[in-house]
Amino acid sequence: MTLWLEAFNTDFWYAIVGAVLLVLALGAFITSRQLIKKLLAFNIMGSGVFLIMVGLAQYQHGPDSVPQALVLTGIVVAVAATALALVLIRKFVLKGGQP
């Protein structure tokens, strides 16, 4: 317990939050039947991973621009994925599929 309190800092706290988000979003991704909800869960899961990435690295050695740059790339890839999924879902719904 003392170990936890000593080593605990802001960066580590957000890494934990990221892990919680990742787990919750994973569950939501699997259970939800609506494609849009799945997409939202994917985005939140991604945010969880990004928080782990930055939080954990900065916990080890302070502000680090490398994971921040990686996450910036990750955010852009995630928005591209979201946009692509939305394009496909919209087309699918227009063809009579269920969202």
């Binding site: 997409l39 990004f50 955010i75």
Partner: peptide
């Protein structure tokens, strides 16, 4: 949160790309 993690670049990107553009695309859909 990104601001609290000393990552203002990510805060900017998240606000503009993550919340902004993604939100607009979702609402439009």
């Amino acid at each position: 949160t990104w601001l609290r993690l000393q990552a203002p670049d990510l805060a900017l990107a998240e606000a503009a790309i993550g919340a902004g553009i993604t939100g607009v695309l979702l609402l439009d859909t």
